[in-house]
Write a protein that binds this DNA or RNA. Structure first.
Length: 315
RNA sequence: GACUUCUUCAG
């Protein structure tokens, strides 16, 4: 029994879901008695393999056999449901889990809260956070990062900032992601003053800015046409030993395209290639889009060809 | 048991 469970688990982890399921069915026919562990492997595999429908039918089958899912199975299923957009169902499964006296991981809560935020339903997101507190599960830094991001994405940066300072007052640990989230929120509303204020605060509080921090600021400068400020930040980041990545370069390329300086955009692109940096599809998309907007179809086609030749797939 | 959060294209 355990041997087969191990094999099925292995097959699931290797994404050989069909093989796993075939073996499972065959075993059931031969009188193998399934337990919650083997269902956990299968459901986790289906969820990670983006087949929640498959996971759901296994779940129903499991319940029908009166096998009770363990915490791991619940967590995996909740994750899968959220990933495929079944947020409401995930919320129900989470409730059921608690009702059965099992302890959801903080990641399970965070996953569902994040899903509500992605759906734009901040009310539900905060409601779940409140329930968490009421039932004495402790929200962690990630929970708050998710909520702050949810507020920023809904353009409620002022509320996000309030939550941010509340956390600081309560002594809740704030990490680089918390700062990055808020900084990005300020950038998106072109409030560079507030963004930079928090950037400086990071330094004084010993939270190290990383490539994401710089990318958020640089990106906003680039699309606002403030290329000089953007390049200044680039130098600062390099001085701080933070390597620019493809997103950083994309920002500059986009900035030059927006400034209708396609020559500079193409120069930069060439320089990136010459430096041995691997181009990405997004980089090509930005350039091709910029060229198309300017009616430079020949050059656009040329870049498209280049994209294919570098082994990237157009999207 | 690889569970969850931040930055990039088009729309």
């Amino acid at each position: 029994k355990y041997t087969f469970s191990v094999i099925i688990d292995r097959l699931c982890k290797e994404k050989k879901l069909d093989d796993a399921h075939r073996l499972f069915s065959k075993l059931l026919d031969k009188g193998f008695v399934a337990d919650e562990v083997v269902y956990c492997s299968l459901i986790d595999g289906y969820c990670k393999g983006n087949d929640v429908e498959g996971a759901l039918s296994l779940w129903n089958e499991m319940v029908h056999r009166e096998i009770y899912p363990n915490s791991e199975t619940y967590n995996a299923f909740i994750f899968g449901l959220c990933k495929s957009g079944y947020t409401e169902k995930a919320g129900c499964v989470l409730d059921e889990m608690i009702a059965r006296g099992l302890i959801p991981s903080s990641a399970a809560f965070n996953t569902v809260i994040h899903a509500y935020c992605s759906d734009g339903d901040l009310e539900k997101a905060f409601e779940l956070h409140n329930q968490m507190v009421q039932r004495s599960f402790e929200p962690d830094t990630i929970t708050y990062n998710v909520l702050i991001d949810g507020l920023c994405k809904k353009r409620m940066v002022d509320k996000a900032a309030k939550l941010f300072s509340m956390l600081a007052d309560k002594g809740m640990p704030i990490d680089g992601v918390t700062y990055n989230t808020l900084i990005s929120g300020y950038c998106k509303e072109s409030n560079m003053e507030a963004a930079l204020k928090h950037f400086d605060e990071m330094l004084t509080r010993g939270v190290r800015p990383n490539v994401v921090t710089y990318n958020s600021l640089i990106y906003e400068y680039c699309i606002a046409g403030k290329m000089v400020d953007a390049y200044q930040l680039l130098h600062k980041m390099i001085q701080s030993n933070i390597a620019p990545d493809s997103i950083t370069y994309s920002a500059f390329i986009k900035g030059h395209c927006i400034g209708e300086d396609l020559e500079e955009a193409l120069n930069l692109h060439a320089k990136i290639l010459a430096d041995g940096i691997r181009p990405t599809v997004v980089m090509y998309n930005i350039l091709i889009n910029g060229l198309c907007q300017e009616g430079k179809m020949q050059e656009a086609k040329c870049l498209f060809k280049q994209l294919l030749e570098s082994g990237l797939s157009p999207n």
